Measured scan of single mutants.
Amino acid sequence: MASQGTKRSYEQMETDGERQNATEIRASVGKMIGGIGRFYIQMCTELKLSDYEGRLIQNSLTIERMVLSAFDERRNKYLEEHPSAGKDPKKTGGPIYRRVNGKWMRELILYDKEEIRRIWRQANNGDDATAGLTHMMIWHSNLNDATYQRTRALVRTGMDPRMCSLMQGSTLPRRSGAAGAAVKGVGTMVMELVRMIKRGINDRNFWRGENGRKTRIAYERMCNILKGKFQTAAQKAMMDQVRESRNPGNAEFEDLTFLARSALILRGSVAHKSCLPACVYGPAVASGYDFEREGYSLVGIDPFRLLQNSQVYSLIRPNENPAHKSQLVWMACHSAAFEDLRVLSFIKGTKVLPRGKLSTRGVQIASNENMETMESSTLELRSRYWAIRTRSGGNTNQQRASAGQISIQPTFSVQRNLPFDRTTIMAAFNGNTEGRTSDMRTEIIRMMESARPEDVSFQGRGVFELSDEKAASPIVPSFDMSNEGSYFFGDNAEEYDN
């Protein structure tokens, strides 16, 4: 783990906690998980779902989305002020799938948001429990990260689609708070800032007046979040320049895209947490497990152990491969979309394939898809080993990566060399080191050039047997250095459309 220093740990961010010791953190995270579980059980009762239907990941996603929508204050306010045809701002819903006479049927349900809020609060001892809501947002974000390569979004903001390893959390809503900021990748933060800068260039009043003052505060806050992700002084200094700019424009845009590229080699610290679907927490609570009393951590053995003992089902389209669908969801559960496939294969105990080789589309089923041909199958979400999630980018030494994705962002704290394609990355730096950030740029390029592919990161860190909950005997895996390590390699994943 990167030293926490003055930073709060993510469990504290996750639970809005002030400084807590490890036991208190485990208890408050457990409380959050228990609340999600209780809410899910109650919703299944309301909807009269069978046990099997309640364990269907598509039903879980609909129920999670309903509660997130019920608590989305800004959108609710907007919907009330701008009524649109056929949208009731006070209601929320989605597809629920039921097994009827041996076939899967889709039923569109509609609930009062007020009623959903009441059920959620009741499951969370009367609190709004925003930490639990954020947790579900991060699960949705991790699922998107594993399912889609955001080529269009990258290109629109002047970045290269091969930089997708920097895009963790790119679909997280803005209201996801400190826990959300911690899991956002460098590219995601750059993209958010670039969008602001572009608006400022096109709209003279963007930075002016009372609204402009708020915009400015948001801009500086985002700059500080991004600065905190960088691990070298030169990158941090460049972020200070971007933040202090009187009138952010093209120079800042250039600096930010430069920094994003540099992060492929001088990786930023991005938190990883295993956020599971509500249909995993519900049955665990129903079986009598007391998360608050037992304590829970999002970055240790607990999620692995929970998945070892969970039964989750998914709808499967006619030509999809259930094992591939399982891999997709497994990666999402562990926030591992940008991790090295060699490491993932070792931990999972079966070969993890790149996205383009998977015969599976996303987990969600569109409303126009034919239910007649839908089957369902068990998702295999178990693992051979477990490993500690990392909050750091690993040290800054790398190795060759593949054509589709030119770097990785480690999820697990496991000893290995970190793949990246130096030639491709360095070719993108057209040696432009003039301007006010020239000395920093020169320094950053120097550090990137001296990074050695064969150097090892996370020295001495290994994986653990599932029986080793105290992480007492690390097993340090050895990897084939020459092997392909990137998930979005030469990829044809669908595009994420909101």
Rank of each mutant, 00 (worst) to 15 (best):
E14S: 08
Y52A: 15
I138Y: 01
V312Q: 00
K273R: 11
G35C: 10
H140G: 13
S478F: 11
E469T: 13
Q311E: 03
T378I: 06
S413V: 14
A27Y: 15
L193I: 14
N397V: 13
H334C: 14
I25E: 02
G431A: 12
T130H: 06
G185N: 13
P95N: 02
T130L: 13
R416E: 02
P477G: 01
G356I: 06
A427G: 11
D51W: 01
H82I: 03
R156M: 11
K470W: 13
W386N: 08
P83K: 14
I225W: 06
F230W: 07
E192P: 03
A260F: 01
D439K: 07
P410T: 10
G185F: 02
E495W: 09
P318T: 09
V343E: 12
K198G: 00
T23D: 02
G356C: 14
R389N: 09
M426C: 12
G86F: 15
E292Q: 07
T433V: 15
V463E: 08
S3V: 04
G177P: 00
A85C: 06
G126N: 08
C164I: 01
H140A: 05
C275T: 09
R246V: 06
I425Y: 09
N101R: 08
L108A: 13
G462F: 02
Q364E: 12
S269I: 07
A129G: 08
R99C: 14
S274E: 06
T6Q: 06
T147M: 06
S345Q: 02
R441H: 13
A2D: 01
S310Y: 04
R317P: 01
N21S: 15
L328I: 10
W104C: 11
W120G: 08
G185R: 07
V363G: 10
K348C: 05
E14T: 04
I316K: 01
P318R: 11
S310K: 09
N125T: 12
K7P: 00
S262I: 12
V329K: 00
A263D: 02
R305D: 00
R382Y: 14
L259Y: 06
L154N: 07
S297N: 03
L315K: 00
F39H: 04
G169Y: 01
N492T: 13
G394V: 08
N101C: 15
Y148V: 05
D160M: 05
N319V: 02
T433M: 00
S392F: 13
T360H: 05
K113E: 12
E372H: 08
A403D: 08
R384W: 10
L172I: 13
Y40W: 10
G300N: 11
E220T: 13
S457G: 08
R243D: 01
R75D: 07
G349D: 07
V352F: 01
E443P: 03
R384A: 05
V476G: 09
T171W: 03
W207A: 02
P95K: 07
T437N: 15
Q42I: 05
P277I: 08
G228C: 14
G180Q: 09
N247G: 10
E292V: 09
C44Q: 11
I138D: 06
D421S: 05
R293M: 13
A337Y: 09
M481N: 03
L328D: 00
Q122P: 00
A278R: 00
W139E: 04
T45E: 13
T130M: 07
P277C: 14
F464K: 04
S245H: 01
E372I: 08
V329Y: 00
G132L: 07
T147I: 14
R382L: 05
S287H: 07
G132W: 05
K325C: 03
M159Q: 08
S359L: 03
P161R: 07
M222D: 08
F291A: 13
A427P: 08
M448P: 02
G228V: 14
E210Y: 04
P303H: 11
R118N: 10
I96A: 08
F346N: 02
L358R: 03
R174I: 09
N395E: 01
P303Q: 13
G177M: 07
Y10K: 01
T171G: 04
H272G: 03
Q241P: 10
